[in-house]
């Protein structure tokens, strides 16, 4: 049934800290590793050792550059399903294979009834759904539904594989419908944001913006700036100027 259930009390989701994410891809690879044997596995790869390797991944880590001049910064950005409260990917599904769980808000695809029409991928602004070219069905983040309730795992392992794998603790899992939960507190403290709220999908996942720099480059350029190097400066001058600049950072 692709009509949406009444909004759930419980809204399980991820909070991703863009301040501490280092773009190491550990979340993406551990996601692929767990989920290729999980609920919607296998996640196939095409031409893996050829000229055009590509495959089904449920999590993608982008790397962006933001700002201008000395204010330029790198932002590593992991992108996966946001388990929206009003997901058009579910309502457009003609078969009922896509659904949003009434009990915890997780958005899933039933791998046994999906016809692979790809319309859900067209309806998702976040690129969260990927087509499995080998299986002919759509795959997406399951929020590791086969881990988080799995009593055969140790309690500390009952969270999504990406969260467990993150070496910098940039990923957090919890109930964003409960204002007292740790993730909700984190979102409140760090002014976490939803992606493109104007599109009306009401994502559950939140992203924590990078913190302000402690020593903004515009504030202390006078004290540590290297002597200006003219066009006629020799190689040695240029080297020291570079070394000074590099060591000052």
């Amino acid at each position: 049934m692709t009509s949406l259930p009444a909004p759930s009390q419980k809204k399980l989701g991820l909070v991703i800290d863009l301040d501490t994410c280092v773009g190491c891809q550990a979340c993406a690879t551990s996601c692929k590793e767990w989920n290729t044997g999980g609920f919607s596995g296998p996640l196939s790869d095409q031409d893996p050792y050829g000229a055009d390797p590509h495959g089904t991944w449920l999590n993608r880590v982008h790397m962006y550059e933001a700002g201008e001049g000395d204010d330029t910064r790198t932002v590593n950005f992991p992108r996966s399903c946001l388990h929206c409260e009003t997901p058009a990917c579910v309502t457009v599904c003609p078969t009922g294979a896509s659904y949003k769980r009434a009990e915890d808000g997780i958005v899933l695809v039933n791998p046994d009834t999906c016809i692979g029409c790809k319309l859900c991928s067209w309806a998702c602004p976040y690129g969260a759904r990927e087509y499995d070219y080998a299986d002919g069905t759509m795959k997406k983040c399951t929020l590791c539904v086969d881990r988080i309730y799995n009593e055969t795992l140790e309690p500390e392992d009952r969270q999504p594989a990406c969260v467990r794998a993150c070496p910098t603790g940039a990923r957090h899992f919890g109930d964003l419908g409960d204002p007292t939960s740790a993730v909700s507190q984190l979102v409140a403290d760090r002014e976490g944001v939803a992606l493109m709220p104007e599109l009306g999908y009401n994502p559950v996942n939140r992203y924590l913006p990078p913190r302000e720099r402690r020593n903004a480059p515009s504030a202390d350029t006078t004290t540590t700036a290297a002597p200006a190097v003219g066009t006629d400066a020799g190689v040695v001058d240029k080297f020291f100027a570079w070394a000074d600049k590099a060591l000052t950072r």
Binding site: R60, V61, M63, Y64, E65, V193, A194, P209, P210
Partner: peptide
């Protein structure tokens, strides 16, 4: 990416 205050954002590395 949810950071409209950061100004122009451009990709430097593809996933």
């Amino acid at each position: 990416i949810g950071l409209p205050k950061l100004g122009r954002v451009r990709p430097i590395e593809s996933p």
